[in-house]
């Protein structure tokens, strides 16, 4: 009972805020609705017993991704009204694509059945929290996958820097080592000037 109420509450708010993301006039509101959607998705994950995934959604998506989105929409010099003006003509094609996907999902779920092996994927050992269960295999059995994800993150880091880092020329900055090591003899020249002759 309680479980059902909680599920439908999260699910409805999730779908509602997802719709609001694409219909809101103000892009900042869109992002705020997106954050609401993430929170509700996290709630659904908690209901499934996947607390770790719920926490990941909150710290990664809400904490970092949504903040970056907010950053971008608030600071980009783009007129969103202009962007939006041409969007209506894509509605028919969007409806078609969305309709096809929805139709497919309906077909999938109407004919769905799990294989016998599906029992294997269910956690039998309730004494473990799912964070522990993940930890037990992620760093050992899935060692290879874990290191590959490290490389993916590294490439993401390189990509971000390659594509966005710009060195401005002519910026004055402190170079402590050089400043401390500067000697008067290197930078000052003393000329004896006899009056009337100039330097």
């Amino acid at each position: 009972m309680l479980y059902g109420i909680a599920f439908y509450l999260f699910a409805m708010v999730l779908v509602g805020s997802a719709i609001a993301v694409i219909t809101a006039k103000n892009p900042v509101h869109s992002v705020l609705f997106l954050i609401l959607a993430f929170f509700n998705a996290a709630g659904l994950m908690v209901l499934l017993g996947a607390e770790f995934i719920a926490m990941l959604l909150v710290i990664v998506y809400v904490g970092a991704v949504a903040v970056l989105f907010l950053f971008v929409v608030m600071m980009m010099d783009v007129s969103f009204a202009d962007l939006r003006s041409g969007a209506m003509k894509y509605v028919p094609i969007g409806v078609v694509v969305g309709g096809v996907l929805l139709f497919e999902l309906v077909i999938i779920y109407s004919g769905w059945k799990f294989s016998d092996a599906m029992e294997l994927a269910n956690p039998n050992d309730i004494s473990l929290t799912n964070t522990e269960a993940l930890g037990h295999i992620l760093y050992t059995k899935y060692f290879f996958i874990f290191q590959m994800s490290g490389l993916v993150l590294l490439v993401a880091m390189i990509g971000a820097i390659v594509l966005t880092l710009r060195k401005r020329s002519g910026v004055k900055r402190q170079k402590i080592y050089e400043q401390v090591n500067r000697k008067a003899s290197d930078v000052i020249e003393i000329h004896k000037v006899t009056p009337g002759t100039g330097v």
Binding site: W112, F114, E119
Partner: peptide
């Protein structure tokens, strides 16, 4: 994965070899 409960190629292909192969998902 939702159907088979496995991500390993060997496991999936074994599962699909029987009459499971026509599952819509």
């Amino acid at each position: 994965y939702g159907f088979a409960g496995a991500t390993n190629f060997d496991d999936i292909s074994v599962l699909l070899s029987g009459d499971n192969s026509l599952n819509i998902g």
